[in-house]
Nucleic acid binder design. Structure first.
Lengths: 192, 192
DNA sequence: CGAAAATTTGACATGACTCAACTGGAGTGG
DNA sequence: CCACTCCAGTTGAGTCATGTCAAATTTTCG
């Protein structure tokens, strides 16, 4: 069950001893969510960060008009959570729900802090994860500044071909920041 | 000269011994840039990350149509750089130039790696920095998905009042992803 | 002061949105 | 196995926010 996580750590050239792996394992809780279940709901405190072992999730916000805006999808081998709420202890603005049955390994803030204390290398691991995440969010910001809906859609297809096959166009539109109708028209234009 | 950086580290509850501070200092190079000088140019390799001691910078991209899109401003007590290029060793898509005379402390990739090796706490420091940066970029993505130009402008004013006073509206428009004309109209509407 | 840059304004174009209707599966129950 | 509903996706018509291009005005600064 921890295989995927341990391999994910190893991929970043962080080598854990058997003892460290034992410590690591002791800090996480395994959970299984069914399709449509919520991992986090708007207004709650996000007490855990989750590593997806398999499945598919979406992290989204609902605005005053009831519109959903997807911040990110999450799939196996990815981390998800609302870091703002997790770190600040303030209520989350996001919902995270499961688009498929999803298994996760979750760690609480205090367990994570213990883990940092007992296995300092994990600071490095999360630093590397965060670097990658920050690069990708920065690219998304640049894309939102300069690209049309059609360009952003093509970029999405290129970047997340696997996700495209697993979610509805409705969801993709919400991720791209356009309406499903607009996405439909974009797709029609592109298909020519 | 290192005061600000050391205080920045301390602010995150990372306590360095005098020896560690010495090591830290040995890894950085001080540089002074004049207004309008470039710290990084599109196509170059970004070999350093820079901590701004004082001054003001902008990190921006120029698209095919010659439009500039500002990814971020940087001011004293902030880090700037193109992490993608820095980490991957690939050419940068960004320019970083100085909107005011700017003093920075720069660290190369190999020095940073040495620093991580000699002062492992620095992993934690950069992890904390990255967490904060990621939260803020995520908020910006959500804002770009759901907010109008006027709302994004107000949010900008609230979040960066100090920067607003130091840069032209032209720059702010480019940061918000709108034209200077639109910003001018937004400001006119808001002033009523 | 005078040139260059920044900002504002006007007229018009356009990309994306809204609202509403229609289409075509997928699933359900009789 | 058919009729029915439900939902995602598509299409159409009109609207709105923002963009484009050009010109006028104001500010900045040598």
């Amino acid at each position: 069950m921890f295989d995927l996580l341990i391999r994910n750590i190893l991929k970043r050239n962080i080598h854990l001893t058997p003892d460290e792996i034992k410590i690591l394992q002791s800090k996480f809780t395994y959970k299984h969510f069914r399709k449509h279940q919520y991992i986090l709901q708007q207004g709650e405190l996000s007490r855990v960060e989750s590593f997806i072992v398999n499945g598919l999730t979406r992290t989204y916000e609902v605005d005053e008009k009831g519109q959903e805006h997807i911040l990110q999808f999450g799939m196996e081998d990815w981390w998800i959570g609302d870091m703002y709420s997790f770190l600040s202890g303030k209520p989350s603005a996001f919902n995270i729900d499961c688009l498929e049955d999803t298994e996760v390994l979750q760690i609480t803030k205090s367990n994570l802090e213990q883990l940092y204390g007992e296995v300092p290398k994990m600071n490095q691991y999360f630093r590397l994860l965060l670097e990658k995440a920050l690069i990708s969010t920065n690219q998304r910001i640049i894309a939102s500044l300069r690209k049309t809906a059609a360009e952003r859609y093509l970029e999405f297809l290129e970047k997340y071909p696997f996700i495209n096959q697993r979610v509805s166009n409705h969801q993709i539109a919400s991720f791209l920041g356009i309406t499903p109708q607009s996405l439909s028209r974009v797709r029609k234009d592109l298909s020519r």
